[in-house]
Design a protein around this nucleic acid. Structure first.
Lengths: 256, 256
DNA sequence: GGTTGACCTTGACGCAGCGTCAGGGTTCCA
DNA sequence: TGGAACCCTGACGCTGCGTCAAGGTCAACC
């Protein structure tokens, strides 16, 4: 027999760590060699070749569980396996590229979990003078909508954008921006609600039917409103006194 | 307070699994909410928003350990982190693309752990009529060399290729191909070794000095030879009797 | 012959990001 | 009143090793 190698020499020749060699033994990829008189593993030169072949496959992204089978596979199964592994690599690369696109969007600013059209809408609110706290409340609401109905977002944003073309809606936002800071029993709330109801009356019949939000999502959005605005509960009561129910999905009280 | 959500409702709204939510709790990404009278977690709507933001970052390939810090980071550190994560993604993509290239080479056939020029050389051996068993022995030897001195491979292969242009070298390979199958005491060995020594004498002075193989690698290759060819030991002895030592790095016996 | 330092051995935990039981209690609906 | 569908905690599993821990061994030097 030729010169027998120790495990670290073997590992050195193949360019791997000693730990990796032992790992391959444990996984059955590389057969355990004979031991010398003191229990040390002793390898022949052939083990170096085997080890290098294992590393070559592993470096190519082949999972160790498949390396085992591939090492002694015929050419046709080898080719098939290679084909499939390449497929896996392609999808992994695509996933990573999608990740890159997403974080590129994140870098743009606030678009954490929001599509660009929603970011644009929020920016327009800021431009109108809506205070930051209220913009953030809107943002959180739209994050929820975008998570449930991502494909509807362009439609919603288009709708909201058009509403902002109406100066009375802008005025309403100014009102509501104030309301955010008021306590639940502020006497001015009644006036704001009156102006809101006036505007709602002007809406064409069935305008709120367009609102395709599922009920549970509307409830969730109402919850956000109630959680973040102290005067919210009072407003809902005042609205109900005037014949309107809900908030996200504001509807006339059904005539029971 | 608004409608309180159970953990599965929360998970559903954010599009993640219940297990993932609990994992985020355990990692401190999402604060543990209050429990109801029977110990169930109860979430407000704000948790949905937080959870969606976590998933958005995680989906972008941000490791959870960094998500924690990023969630409440200022814009400038956020931008810096995004930059660095994008860098990481780019290198990962490049790695995977290299993996694809490598397994594309693997698919080409035998190039497990061998550069293309070595594969070409082995194919030429086959073309000359060298039997498969000997080609495989050569292959294993070159796998070892390629692992230690990858950048030298083009040089070696060029050298070996030129040697094959000499018909006497081809003849020698034919001899050696026979030797592979002979037992250690085959009487024909002496004749083969004689022809080999004749050729060596014809080499220009210092031709073997070009052989830049490190000694330990040459020893390893000798070991491969000794392990795989029964008559190897006998040949080395016969060579030594004729004034040559070694095999991989064949040299005149130094005049001591 | 004693010591030092570089090896070798097995065994076991740790990492990321959850999936997936196991072995309970709870709530809801028919 | 029973079963389905939730909830809880705790723990192991997966990948591919890195990294101690707690020893035994070997070669060399004093």
């Amino acid at each position: 027999m030729g010169a027998m190698l120790t495990i670290s020499q073997l590992a050195g020749y193949a360019g791997v760590t000693v730990r990796a060699v032992r790992h391959y033994h444990a996984k059955g990829l590389l057969p355990e060699p004979e031991r010398d008189h003191s229990g040390y593993r002793r390898y022949g030169a052939a083990a170096v070749v085997e080890l290098i072949r294992i590393r070559t496959l592993a470096d190519a992204g082949v999972p160790l569980s498949r390396v085992k089978a591939l090492l002694d596979a015929g050419p046709e199964e080898f080719a098939a396996a290679v084909e499939e592994i390449d497929h896996r690599l392609r999808t992994e690369i695509r996933d990573l590229q999608r990740h890159r696109e997403r974080i590129a969007q994140l870098a743009a600013g606030e678009s954490l979990a929001l599509p660009p059209e929603a970011v644009a809408y929020l920016d327009r609110l800021r431009g109108i003078g809506v205070p930051e706290a209220m913009v953030e409340a809107e943002r959180d609401a739209w994050i929820l909508v975008a998570a449930q109905l991502p494909e509807q977002m362009p439609f919603y944003m288009e709708m909201k954008g058009q509403q902002l073309d109406d100066p009375r809606v802008v005025e309403l936002y100014a009102d509501l921006a104030d309301v955010v800071g008021w306590p639940a029993d502020d006497p001015r709330l009644a006036g704001v609600v009156d102006r809101l109801v006036d505007q709602l009356r002007d809406l064409p019949d069935g305008a709120w039917e367009d609102d395709q939000l599922p009920d549970d999502l509307a409830d969730l959005l109402d919850a956000v409103f109630l959680d973040s605005v102290p005067a919210a509960r009072t407003m809902l009561r005042l609205l109900e006194e005037r014949g309107w129910t809900g908030w996200t999905k504001l509807k006339p009280v059904s005539v029971g």
